[in-house]
Nucleic acid binder design. Sequence first.
DNA 1: TGAGATATGTCAACAAGGCTGACTTAAAAA
DNA 2: TTTTTAAGTCAGCCTTGTTGACATATCTCA
Lengths: 172, 172
Amino acid sequence: MPDAIPAVRSQRLGKDILDEVPAYDLIELFFFAYRDFVSDPDRILDEYGFGRAHHRVLHFVDRQPGLTIAELLDILRITKQSLNRVLKELIEKDFVESRMGTADRRQRLLYVTAQGHDLALKLAKLQTRRIMQALADLEPEGKALISGYLLRLIDPDDRDHVERLVFGAGET
Amino acid sequence: MPDAIPAVRSQRLGKDILDEVPAYDLIELFFFAYRDFVSDPDRILDEYGFGRAHHRVLHFVDRQPGLTIAELLDILRITKQSLNRVLKELIEKDFVESRMGTADRRQRLLYVTAQGHDLALKLAKLQTRRIMQALADLEPEGKALISGYLLRLIDPDDRDHVERLVFGAGET
DNA sequence: TGAGATATGTCAACAAGGCTGACTTAAAAA
DNA sequence: TTTTTAAGTCAGCCTTGTTGACATATCTCA
């Protein structure tokens, strides 16, 4: 009885497994990997008196010059009060600048300064080293494979938005 | 001149790229993916008056019954004061229990209660659903491939430790 | 056995980075 | 002209991390 119709049985298992057997290994690896991934920049940020919140803002403004406050809030999913606290510091220390919108003068368009760009790049390179070295022998398809997986981890509703943001950042 | 020795040129590029061209796509995808990954449990944790810090503690105690405080601190890399705050709440609300060590009576061995195990499992399954569905057609090698990649993202010094923790959690 | 090391617990104070709610101002849109 | 929208600000709160100091029980080693 237990070894009857093995093909069907393993097919059912393949489906049930989604709900029945937790993927503890991936859950934990994701936790540890992300921790090391974000901790790389910490040392450098410290030297400037910045934290991870500043890093996130600097990163996205560097990547998308002219970003508005509303767009940035949408990306970070924090409140404007939280954003304002770190953004104010980035502006005061001259890493980011805020210009009045041209089409809509209520908007503030955000740009990194030269100094801001240098820091953003430095931090991105640091994270890139880890990310690329981990690809190891997965090349040449590895990168597409990993980015595809990460994209599918994102909520389906946001996936298109993120995809545009990540892969189409150069466009207008 | 530009199209001379293309093989060598692309080989050099392949190496230089590690330091020169930031992998913005992977950096950002990792950020968004991790955010959605950890946000799944939030709603449920809220119902119990717990946060992410409680989740992490509950998870690792569930996975490794009999864990000591020192071992848990080593996994989470937080101070004992921070740990104690959330651990105390988990114990008070009867999700975790602390027993005196047998070999060394200074130690406290941590165990989840039935209630604690149920919650840990519920949260793990929630995260497993996302993680496994994202594997999609990467099967059957997908899981090993992703876990290999995540493992290589971890600091080389900790890699063995994490590997034992993640893959050898059933053993004594 | 006694001294020192170790595992844990606790108190107090502080910081980063989230949050809510209320209110203002300037500019755009209806 | 009225209403809506984009942004800024004030005040206060929460969670989760930190440091520093100190207490207690237990183990280990000379």
